[in-house]
Design a protein around this nucleic acid. Structure first.
Lengths: 227, 227
DNA sequence: AATTAGATTAATGAAAGGTTAATTTTCTTA
DNA sequence: TAAGAAAATTAACCTTTCATTAATCTAATT
């Protein structure tokens, strides 16, 4: 869950935004004054700060500058009515990651925040993860199977097919699905080709009897992998 | 130097922006049509794409969606006159990192681009230290390989290629990645050139059988270096 | 038993990769 | 700025790889 700090002196806008963001599943702290933000950052961790620029007790820019100085890794964005060019540039120059002009649409704000956080956030699940396959590991990125310390290179088709079967492990993969996805076309010859590759994969996975590519007559294959 | 691709059909705005961005020290390619963008991405590497939404030959959103599907790691932003809420959300939903509304101030655009790119991070880990490579050492700075007390000079291409392979050691480097990064362009002749340099590097690294540049058929190369 | 689907092994040919040599381009230095 | 050297690119030729096709055999379904 994302933790946001909203610094906005306007009561109605502040309320509206904080409620909306909470509704979208975010953990929101709303404060009405710039004073006290720095000590708060000392106390609690936030993923993103949303700062109003025009506040009675302090200029949002100088708050942003202070934050950037002290906590250069905390991302923050400005929310403001001042939309003149010079202000936008100033906002970015003190280290903001975005600058939104009022009137701000709440939905757009949420989407922008989510986009920012997902990019900044904990490195999203990498596609180059190595999949566990019984005694084996499938390193799809490097197109190979690992068995103990041995490395078994895969051809592109073998790799694609095995990755597909793995993604749908323990579920029926019909010929049609496999062929359309990997060969691009479901016809007689490609179906023959698929058989050849099923044989090859079975041979590659021979060392672990728990891993089985089972045929479902007339339907397709199920790749059995103990969970 | 940042490499940008600007896709904008409006001649005057396109010219203005591309010149301004170039002036700011960016390497800008400006194309007027959405058609041909995907093949271009196959050929050349870009750090960021700036896409117009309204183009005569294709909807910018569907272009963005296609790019995101095929190259999920390339960041892109939309530039548009359509500022209705629904469009902003659509832009982000196909994977954009920002959405700017016309009339766009060039200075603001540059600042936003710079902010984005600097956050998207250090594109490359630098190889300024001397790298240990089995019996060898790679001194990229001085463009040479050291073997015992012997010093083997490298040409700049050899050096760039070996440094690239070293940075990505034990992982598959596709032809596309290598060619786009080092040759700047992925085409038939450069692919041939790459082969020649692979041969030369193998010859240079001949003294240590643990160091192998392995080919992955149809994909690229893996530089095997014991950790 | 007949028929269809699947498995296996082997053969083939196009595409990709490797190597060496020739040619062009770029850089130096006179 | 022209000659010579160095480097990169292109060309030519050869080898390897691998998806497909073919041929043959086995299992399932009716």
């Amino acid at each position: 869950m994302y933790r946001l700090l909203l610094v906005e002196d306007d009561t109605s806008l502040g309320y509206l935004l904080s409620e909306y963001l909470k509704m979208k599943g975010m953990d929101v702290v709303w404060v009405k004054e710039a004073t006290g933000v720095l000590p708060l950052l000392e106390e609690r961790a936030f993923d993103l700060l949303v700062l109003d620029v025009m506040m009675p007790d302090m200029d949002g820019f100088s708050l942003g500058a202070q934050i950037h100085e002290r906590y250069p890794r905390i991302p923050f964005l400005f929310l403001t009515a001042k939309s003149m060019k010079i202000d936008v540039l100033k906002g970015f120059s003190v280290g903001a990651v975005d600058y939104l002009k009022k009137p701000i649409d709440e939905e757009e704000l949420v989407v922008r925040i989510e986009t920012l956080l997902s990019r900044l956030g904990p490195a999203e699940e990498s596609t180059d993860a190595i999949a566990r396959l019984g005694r084996y590991q499938l390193d799809s990125q490097n197109q190979c199977l690992l068995l103990d310390s041995e490395e078994i290179p895969l051809t592109s088709r073998e790799n694609e097919l095995l990755a597909f079967l793995y993604r749908h492990r323990n579920r029926l993969c019909t010929h049609g699905d496999i062929l359309k996805r990997i060969w691009g076309r479901n016809d007689y010859f490609n179906r023959k080709s698929l058989n050849v590759f099923i044989t090859r994969l079975r041979k590659h996975l021979d060392e672990d009897p728990e891993l089985r590519i089972e045929n479902v007559h007339g339907q397709g294959f199920i790749f059995r992998v103990p969970e």
